[in-house]
């Protein structure tokens, strides 16, 4: 995931120098297709097949169930909080890291990557240790009649934690690559910090930002492990869509389970399409920037 942002920077290389014999090539392609088919396409297709097993009526009826609707609402609410929070954080962190140098910068970058390295179960348990009844803040929260764990705030916190790196990780390499020249130019021309950020920095990274938002959103809606630990599994109240899928499956309600799962699968498909579109736009934008830079380069050298 961390390297996904690099996708649009790799320009297509001419491959004239190397060429495998045709049979080898065909074998490799066939092997890839078979593996991709078994591992990716087949499960995806089977989700929809299972969901539609009882006919379209049964499929649609699954979404009239109040518990399923509550799960969908909760999932949307959680994503609606977690994604903007991580956009704000990701932007500010990436800006700080890429445009300024300060002590502890490396440490901050490592910390941002922490959620990638920690198992979601552990991150859920950590929140129980902090906000649970026997946790560090447990007595204080109880005294003020606030509930974090086994309620919506805990689910939001756990989701923010696991989706923490997605935006920042997309932005940092791009912002570092772009350097600070344009910002410095803006500053020299009298722009304030906020103007520089809004007029110069933000437009330069908008596609990478969107890309990060898409990934962040997909993970926020699909997260199971950490959310499962802090949810309490109260149906209709603290069950997100992935948890609802598990509940329904465990209740032998397979059509409904796969109906909800199909929503998540559709989300994944939409994410993929959006990601492809963004990548193409980002590639075009990057190419444009490069050409402008090349054109302006000689003038800049002549200037002093």
């Amino acid at each position: 995931m961390a390297g996904a942002g690099g996708g649009h920077r790799a320009a297509p290389r001419p491959r004239s120098g190397m060429s495998e014999p045709a049979p080898v090539r065909r074998l490799l392609i066939a092997a890839t297709l078979v593996v991709a088919g078994c591992v990716l396409v087949l499960p995806l297709a089977s989700v929809f097949a299972e969901a539609l097993r009882g006919g379209l009526g049964a499929y649609l009826a699954s979404f009239r169930d109040p518990e399923a609707l509550a799960a969908i609402r909760l999932t949307l609410l959680v994503a609606a909080i977690a994604v903007p929070v991580n956009v704000l954080f990701g932007l500010s962190a990436a800006w700080a890291i890429a445009k300024f140098s300060f002590p502890g910068k490396r440490l901050l970058i490592t910390l941002i990557d922490l959620p990638y390295a920690v198992s979601p179960v552990v991150s859920g348990l950590v929140y129980i240790m902090i906000y649970g009844a026997n946790g560090v803040f447990g007595p204080w929260l109880a005294a003020h009649d606030l509930q974090v764990i086994f309620a919506v705030p805990g689910i939001v916190l756990a989701t923010i934690f696991v989706t923490f790196p997605f935006v920042a990780r997309e932005l940092i390499p791009l912002m570092e690559e772009q350097g600070t020249e344009q910002e410095q130019a803006a500053m020299t021309l009298g722009a304030s910090g906020w103007q520089t950020f809004r007029r110069v920095t933000l437009p330069n990274v908008r596609w990478a930002l969107l890309y990060g938002v898409i990934l962040c959103n997909a993970r926020a809606m699909g997260e199971f492990g950490a959310v499962s630990v802090v949810s309490g599994h109260i149906r209709g109240k603290t069950a997100t869509m992935p948890l609802q899928v598990e509940i329904l499956y465990n209740e032998y309600n397979h059509v409904a389970a796969f109906a909800v799962a199909s929503l998540l699968a559709m989300l994944a498909l939409v994410t993929l399409v959006a990601k492809a579109v963004v990548e193409r736009r980002a590639g075009a934008a990057a190419a444009q920037i490069t050409t402008t830079e090349v054109e302006t380069e000689p003038q800049r050298r002549e200037a002093p």
Binding site: I81, P84, V85, L88, F89, D145, L146, Q147, V148, A151, V152, P153, V156, L157
Partner: peptide, 14 residues
């Protein structure tokens, strides 16, 4: 803003 959002979410559930 982050803090406000979290506090808001806690208050809402309460």
């Amino acid at each position: 803003a982050v803090l406000a959002l979290i506090v808001g979410a806690i208050a809402m559930s309460g």
